[in-house]
Design a protein around this nucleic acid. Structure first.
Lengths: 362, 362
DNA sequence: TTGTAAGCGTTATCAA
DNA sequence: TTGATAACGCTTACAA
C-alpha cells in the first residue's frame, strides 16, 4: 500500500493510508465542516465564502464554529476551478533584486492588497523568451489580470509570440496591463519619460551645463530611448546641441556604466561637464567609476539619473534625478487591471526633476 | 440573459453568452484539445502533463498539434485540485522594498525556479497579525511548502496562533521552513548571527577600537539580539567591556537609527570610536545622521553593519559589515522545503566579516 | 496503448 | 432558508 494513496471507504468518503499514524492527515474540507455543523455543504459554502447572506443565523454560527474548531481553510484552487476565476493578479517584472523594480513590486503588492487581491509574482530577468514562458505559465493560474512591469523592447522578434499569447489571454476575459511600455496594443500605464528628461535637461542647461555625456541603454528599451530623446531635446530647446558621439549605450546596468566609464580616457571625460544616465542604477555605476578614477563629483563633473530610487539617500553627493511616483503608477495599474473596461482612460503619470547636489550651478 | 452565464447545451457541453461576439471566449480546456485531436481526454492529459510516456507517438503528435493550434494552457488550479498538490511554494517575507529582503526574495525565487517550483510571495510588513493572516490565506493555495523569511520575535503573543496554524498545515503534508528564526519548532535554516558578529568584533578590537556604540533593535528580534550578543561577547573576549549604556535599541530601520543619532549630543558621540549596527540598513541610517551632523567617518568614528547588501557598493566610505551568503541560504531553504523528511539536517550557514574602509586601523 | 468513469474541493442552479 | 445535484477542468485507477 502506497502511503498517501486514496482508498474508497464505506460511506462514500475516502481515507488516507498514512505512513505514520500522526504524520499526514487529510486536509480539512468544506464537507468536513458541513458534517460537523450538521448542515449541507451548500449551506456551509454560503456561510463561509458566499456573497449573499441568505442564511439563518443558527446555521451560520454552527458552521462558523465548526470551521474554527477544525481549522478550516478554503482550498483556493478548488474555489478558482468552481468559480472559473481567482482573486489573483499576476505580475511579471524584470527583477526583484534591483531597487527600482523592488520598489515597483512593493507598490503593486500594496495596491493590490488594498483591493483584496493576491499577487502572484514572476521574474523575467529581462529575458524575452522567459517573459513568454511566464505568461504561458501564469495564464494557467487564471489570474484576473496580468501586469507586465518589465521594460519593453523597441522591436523584438519574440514579441509577436508574446503579444499573441497575451491577446489570447485577453480574449478569455483576462486583462492585460503594461507598465511603461507601449510596444503592444494593451492597456498601458505610462509615465512621462520624455517630458521628465526634457524638463531635467532644461533645468541643467539653466544651471550652466553645456557638454553632457549621455548614457543610454544597449538594449533597445523604448522607455529608455524616450529618456535619451527627451534629454537631448531639452538641451536643444536651450540652444545646446548634444552631438551623437557623446551619447553612449552601455549595457543597461550599474556594471555596464561602470565599465564604460572605466574605458574612457581622461580627456574624453574632461571635455564633459555632466553625465546623464537613463536610470539611477546606471548613474550610480558611473558615479562609482568616477570616484574610483579620482574624478571629483560634482566639482569636475555633474551626474544625474532617473527614477529617484530610495538608495539615493545613502549616496554622496545627493544625486539629481527625475522622480517617478511609483505608488501612483501602481495604483493606476491595479485599477486598470480591475476596472470595468468602459471606465478606462489613458493618462500619463507626470514625473518631476529633482535637482540636488550632484549638479550644482556651473 | 447575463453575459458570462453558463447555459447547458445539447451534447452535454455548455456555451457562454457573450456580451459582444468577439470579446469573451471560453478558455481552451483539455477536453477541447482532446476533441480536436480525436482522442480521449485521458490520453490528452497523459501527453501534456503525464509523467509516464505510455502513449503512442501518433496520438502524441496529434494532441501536441491540437494543443498548439488552440493555444492551450493547463488550468493550474484544476490540476492542483485533481492532484491534491501544487507546484508552488509560498514565501512570506517582511518586505520587498528593503534591500536585504529583496535580495533574499530574489535568491529564493531563483532557487525555486531551479527545481521547477513557482513561488507565491506574500509580504507581512513585519506585522505579526498579518503574518498569521497570510499563513491562513496561503494555506488555501495548497503549497508544497511555506517558507517564512521574516524576522522572528523573541516572544510574541500572536506566535502561538501562528504556530498552531503552521502545525496544522504541516499535519496535512505541507512543509514549513523558517529562515533565520528559531522561535518555532519547524525546520530552520540559520546563519550564524552570533558568530559573525563575534568575529567582526574581534577583528575590530584588533584594529584598536575600544568604545563601540551598539545599535540593536527595539523590536525583540531573535536574530538581531544574537548579533548584539555576539558582538559584545567578541569585544569581551578581546578584553573590552561594552557597558549597557552604550547599547541602544532604536526602531529597527534606517529611520530609527537616523533619528536616534540625531538625538545624541556631540560629547556622547565623541566618547565613542565606533558604531556597530545590527544591519546595514540601520548602519546606513546612522551614517547618514553622522554625515549630516558633520562628524567624519571613519576619521572620527568607525561604522560597521551586518548583511552586506548590494547597496553598499554605492556608499562612501566602503562599509565594514558581515557577509551573509543569501544564495546559499535560499538554496538550502528550498531544498528543505522539498527534500524528503528523512534527509534533513540542521546546519548553520557561516557568515564572514568584511573589513572595509569605514573601520580603519585605529 | 487507450478510454471510461470516478474522483478532487469548490460553487451555483433549482426545486423544495 | 435549505439541500440535492450538476457543474468546473483536470488526473488516475481500472478495464478493455
Amino acid at each position: 500500500m502506497v502511503p498517501g494513496k486514496r482508498i474508497p471507504v464505506a460511506a462514500g468518503y475516502s481515507a488516507i493510508v498514512t505512513a505514520d499514524a500522526s504524520s499526514t492527515r487529510r486536509p480539512v474540507t468544506l464537507s468536513d465542516v458541513a458534517r460537523l455543523a450538521g448542515v449541507s455543504q451548500s449551506t456551509a459554502s454560503r456561510v463561509i465564502n458566499g456573497s449573499a447572506k441568505r442564511v439563518d443565523n443558527r446555521s451560520r454560527t454552527l458552521v462558523l464554529d465548526a470551521a474554527r474548531e477544525l481549522g478550516y481553510t478554503p482550498n483556493l484552487a478548488a474555489q478558482a476551478v468552481a468559480r472559473g476565476a481567482s482573486r489573483t493578479i499576476a505580475l511579471i517584472t524584470s527583477s526583484v533584486a534591483d531597487a527600482y523594480f523592488a520598489a515597483m513590486t512593493a507598490a503593486i503588492m500594496r495596491a493590490a492588497e488594498e483591493v483584496g487581491l493576491r499577487v502572484s509574482l514572476a521574474v523575467s530577468d529581462r529575458r524575452l523568451d522567459r517573459e513568454l514562458e511566464l505568461v504561458r505559465e501564469l495564464r494557467g493560474q487564471q489570474p484576473r489580470a496580468i501586469i507586465l512591469a518589465g521594460t519593453g523592447y523597441l522591436d523584438a522578434p519574440a514579441d509577436r509570440a508574446l503579444e499573441t499569447e497575451l491577446a489570447r489571454y485577453q480574449e478569455t476575459g483576462g486583462r492585460v496591463v503594461l507598465i511603461s511600455r507601449s510596444d503592444m496594443p494593451f492597456e498601458t500605464v505610462d509615465f512621462d519619460n520624455y517630458d521628465g528628461a526634457h524638463r531635467l535637461a532644461v533645468e541643467l542647461a539653466g544651471r550652466g551645463y553645456r557638454t553632457p555625456l549621455v548614457l543610454g541603454s544597449a538594449a533597445p528599451l523604448r522607455s529608455m530611448q524616450e529618456r535619451v530623446d527627451g534629454f537631448i531635446a531639452g538641451f536643444a530647446s536651450a540652444g545646446v546641441d548634444i552631438p551623437a558621439e557623446r551619447v553612449h549605450h552601455p549595457e543597461f546596468s550599474w556594471q555596464g556604466a561602470h565599465s564604460l566609464l572605466h574605458g574612457f580616457d581622461r580627456d574624453e571625460l574632461a571635455a564633459a561637464d555632466l553625465v546623464f544616465a537613463i536610470s539611477d542604477d546606471v548613474a550610480l555605476g558611473a558615479l562609482a567609476s568616477l570616484r574610483e578614477r579620482g574624478i571629483a563629483v560634482p566639482q569636475e563633473l555633474g551626474v544625474a539619473g532617473f527614477d529617484d530610487i530610495t538608495t539615493l539617500r545613502d549616496v554622496v553627493p545627493k544625486l539629481t534625478t527625475v522622480h517617478v511616483p511609483l505608488d501612483e503608477v501602481a495604483r493606476e495599474a491595479v485599477h486598470r487591471a480591475t476596472a470595468s473596461p468602459n471606465e478606462l482612460r489613458r493618462n500619463v503619470i507626470p514625473t518631476r526633476p529633482m535637482l540636488r547636489e550632484s549638479t550644482p550651478q556651473r
